[in-house]
Design a protein around this nucleic acid. Structure first.
Lengths: 195, 195
DNA sequence: ATTATCTATAGATCTATAGATAATGC
DNA sequence: ATTATCTATAGATCTATAGATAATGC
């Protein structure tokens, strides 16, 4: 089989690990789980990640964040200059990706890894996910006179957590996640009270 | 020391376990962690919970849900008959309690426990947390003509996830969580767009 | 030759059990 | 007598290491 044609074995490891970590978190996923899904032996993972589980998790998280940094940027750039449209586009982008439970990431996953790595990953998550959304709200405030409480960071992380809630809801609902996102964005823009 | 005056040893176990489980989740918390926080030996936990970790976790979750069922009911009952006030009161109630990461609960914690227990706990969580909030929105739709998309369940779980996002934000912000909640509720009610 | 896998296994950690000891409450 | 703790330890699971074997790409 000629290489370069598709995915390197290392990339497959990262992809499978991402899905498992994204679903159940760092501690609940074992190297055995990952190896089983890949159809290889647990020890074989050490060929790709000699420092082991933590190294793999950090790589998984870094890649996901890089993907989001790019995905967010292009998603926003390609959407009309309008907060509502951009939020709906962002929602679609996020829903196309493995879910990110920020609460779990901060409280459970990150505490398990080395201090230095943790700080760096948290910074990357802020830049890749929160700041781009914050930017959309800030430009909306500027250009469309959206209400501002001077703290669009809270708005951005609330938005992310709503997407997360939708990704959970999908398990119990037959509605399309995109419709749920649009509905919630509608409420964020116009409010529940009749106008 | 006369008993009945305060907390039974078993109650202390549940209380300590709740804080740890609430913070880091089922798999990431070991019986040793709980015992250490209590100042006892790991094996001593089996006196109170002979069936072990899962039994303890189920008890912790059930108690938390019962507390929420009561807390929600009285919080809503004591607030003015007005969706905005009731939501703000609920936010204060939730912020006074250990955080509940629904996404983690569904995806990570619940998968580790027995099928039957899982179903029961999920039902209890629905009744104790989601339905009361759903009720507030539904009555708001009825009485204050709030906008309805016919799916206030999504609204309720989004509301919960926003509270969760606030409890995470507190770690990085110096703002009062109650103020953050009020701000977000304001946006939910009136929208970001100028009226 | 390099890359990707394997088997075998050490060492750490975690849950759980058995049985002894101490404290508490009639 | 009952309740709450302890020590000691078995057994399972998990991460990680060492060294062998197979596949791949010049």
């Amino acid at each position: 089989m000629p290489r370069q044609e598709n995915e390197s074995p290392r990339d497959r490891v990262v992809a499978v690990a991402e899905h498992l970590f994204s679903d159940r978190g760092y501690k609940a996923v074992t190297l055995r789980d990952i190896a089983d899904d890949l159809g290889i032996r647990q020890a074989s993972l050490y060929h790709h990640f000699p420092k082991g589980k933590e190294e793999l998790f950090v790589e998984v998280t870094e890649r996901a964040m890089k993907r989001h940094a790019v995905g967010m940027r292009t998603t926003i750039a390609e959407a009309p200059e309008n907060a509502e449209c951009q939020l709906k586009a962002i929602a679609r982008w996020m829903l196309s990706q493995p879910p990110i439970d920020m609460a779990r990431m901060v409280r459970s996953d990150m505490v398990e890894i080395e201090e230095a790595q943790r700080h760096r990953l948290m910074q990357t998550a802020l830049r890749s996910l929160i700041l781009p959304i914050e930017g959309v709200f800030d430009r909306g405030i500027e250009r469309e006179h959206l209400k501002s409480m001077g703290h669009s960071r809270l708005l951005a992380s609330s938005f992310l957590s709503i997407i997360e809630a939708i990704q959970v809801s999908v398990r119990f609902s037959s509605r399309r996640p995109e419709d749920m996102a649009d509905e919630m964005i509608d409420i964020l823009m116009n409010g529940l009270r009749p106008r």
